[in-house]
């Protein structure tokens, strides 16, 4: 099985085989991160730009390190410091970067569909690092990497995604990826934060946390943006936390060895209790390592890495 796609735009388009290829490729990459000398010459002479129209620390740093561990050259562009601030169109920014010899553009953008649009505009590979409320495929892949590593496989697993599903690109990518691999996905949150007809994407929909957590193998806790309260989408942090906050007592409903995931950054004490976040079932910190490994795997696959050796 070889990687055929120019871009990684979302998990909606990927086949189960492609998802497995990424996850399989990430295994040796994770091993590299564990070495004392974290450097392989695999992508020497390749170039990656991170083009971020939204603030991000962890995703951007993760891509940057992933590229550097593989010896690619990296440049970071932020919307505020580039010609974007002068009103340049995304097409023109993309064409300019391509003309400078960039192989991979990693983009985060506040508009849903921006990555797909950019990918149509330029010949370079595009990796979607989050577009609006559409998809965040690398986050879902790193979540899936953690799940597969701990649980062995996806078939028959029950995964609950908790919180603001409406605005979550992480939730959407996870639903696409996990359901393709045979897991059951449940989404739970206040009715005002559940998107319309999401059951037609293959998720089971809950508004009651205890019912949603019954017997699940994985709990993926989403960050609640505090400004959603000001937008009138829920009455107070207090009530949100009381109805949907994950704490030890709530976890009594889950399978005994259920994993706890959170894409970060956490609002401790709001959507997740610190005891849970730092508890024995939490893989939240390990997710970050997995993130670098998955991004290394994607950079490798998208730059035609199947022709070079992984382990040298």
């Amino acid at each position: 099985m070889f990687w055929q796609r120019k871009d990684l735009l979302g998990l909606r388009q990927l086949t189960p085989e492609e998802i497995n290829l990424v996850l399989d490729t990430a295994v040796p990459m994770k091993e590299i991160i564990g070495r004392k000398i974290k450097k392989t010459p695999t992508l020497r002479g390749r170039s990656m730009v991170t083009l971020f129209y939204e603030n991000s620390t962890r995703t951007r740093t993760s891509f940057d390190l992933a590229a550097k561990f593989l010896s690619a050259d990296t440049v970071g562009l932020s919307a505020s410091s580039s010609s974007v601030a002068k009103g340049e169109s995304l097409r023109d920014t993309g064409l300019t970067l391509t003309a400078m010899g960039v192989d991979v553009v990693v983009m985060r953008h506040p508009a849903s569909g921006a990555a797909e649009y950019l990918a149509r505009c330029i010949p370079a590979a595009v990796i979607n690092a989050g577009d609006g409320t559409h998809e965040h495929p690398t986050q879902a892949l790193l979540d899936m990497f953690a799940i597969r590593e701990k649980k062995g496989s996806f078939a028959g697993l029950k995964v609950a995604i908790v919180g603001d599903i409406l605005h979550s690109r992480v939730a959407r990518s996870n639903i696409w990826g996990l359901t393709k691999m045979g897991a059951e996905v449940r989404v739970v949150g206040p009715a005002t934060l559940l998107p319309a007809e999401i059951e037609q994407m293959g998720a089971r929909v809950y508004t009651e946390l205890d019912a949603a957590l019954e017997g699940v193998d994985v709990v993926n806790v989403l960050r609640i943006q505090l400004e959603r309260q000001q937008q009138g989408l829920f009455p107070s942090i207090r009530e949100y936390s009381r109805l949907f906050g994950i704490n030890q007592r709530r976890l009594e409903r889950t399978a005994p060895d259920a994993l706890i995931l959170h894409p970060g950054p956490m609002n401790r004490g709001v959507e997740i209790d610190p005891q849970v976040a730092y508890g024995s079932r939490s893989v939240i910190t390990e997710q970050v390592t997995n993130g670098v490994a998955v991004r290394m795997a994607l950079l490798y696959l998208l730059t035609g890495g199947e022709h070079s050796a992984i382990s040298n």
Binding site: G113, H134, E135, I198
Partner: peptide
């Protein structure tokens, strides 16, 4: 607003 807006992450 419906399943397509949900899939595409576009406000419905």
């Amino acid at each position: 607003e419906g399943v397509v807006s949900t899939m595409l992450g576009l406000k419905g």
